[in-house]
Amino acid sequence: ISALVIVEHEGGAIKPQSVSAVAAAKSLSDDDNTIAMLLAGSGPSLHLAASRAATCHPSVSQVLVADSDKFSYSLAEPWAKLVHLVHQRGGYSHVIAASSSFGKNVLPRAAALLDVSPITDIVEISGSSQFVRPIYAGNALCTVRYTGANPCMLTIRATSFPVPPVSSDSKLNEAPISQVDLSTFDEDITGKSRYVGHTSQDTERPDLGNARIVVTGGRGLKSAENFKMLEKLAEKLGAAVGATRAAVDAGFVPNDLQVGQTGKIVAPELYMAFGVSGAIQHLAGMRDSKVIVAVNKDADAPIFQVADYGLVGDLFVVIPELSEKLPGKK
């Protein structure tokens, strides 16, 4: 097995989901896999990220760095070409990325250039060519076998591949860093898409997809105003705020907070659902959470069937009480 892991980095740091992709690459077989990490970008933050990549996981055998202005904004067109180029030189058996918006955007395009079928959103690896992925928004699990030519291209769900804490002797294991020769990099496509801008959500709160705790409101919250109560609770817990499609459709919150089949799929350690009935489309987006808490005044709400802890009660009493009594974030 020789795997190429496509790495995301920001401000000189490796994104945790990319380290999960390395963990997934490691689990492809019991033998000594060689794992190369591929970073692209430009400027000092790229090189800082590369040096961190070299020690981020004991199994990394090589760090490849593509330094060019073309990669300043993580566009799919140059990135797919880069993966194609690097694979042609390295002949990898697997190419792996995290199922982030970046990985989902880039990896299938690169797979098309290499004329192979990618397998996306993997939650379980059972051998070097057999993988489990959720279908129907997690209402079924599908085992697929890849029978095509190299490389086998995968995106993995980071929540399914936890990264063991880095041990103190990891300094001893520093993978060599080398530059990707871009002299033959084909320019034709790269000018056709241009980065214009980026607006980020308020960064005070963690991203919904990666948060350790998620608090979600449903239609039971009744208004946008009442969602503020939930935000206060989230702030105290250091949690992300989510919502059901019903709450989004009712205009309480913007759609980027939607958890469910047509929204975001989350799997935090603690998921707290307030005034959520538990429609199958919503359950599909959060059923892999480790601990689920449901608060609803309707004791028959289906959400209670998946909740580890249920509390039948009035949200407008329970939420403020929780905000008051719960400990602040660590």
Binding site: L75, S100, S101, F102, S193, R194, Y195, V196, G197, H198, T199, S200, Q201, T203, D207, G209, N210, D256
Partner: peptide, 8 residues
């Protein structure tokens, strides 16, 4: 995109 909106 994760955590925001990107314009191309």
């Amino acid at each position: 995109v994760d955590g925001g909106l990107e314009t191309l």
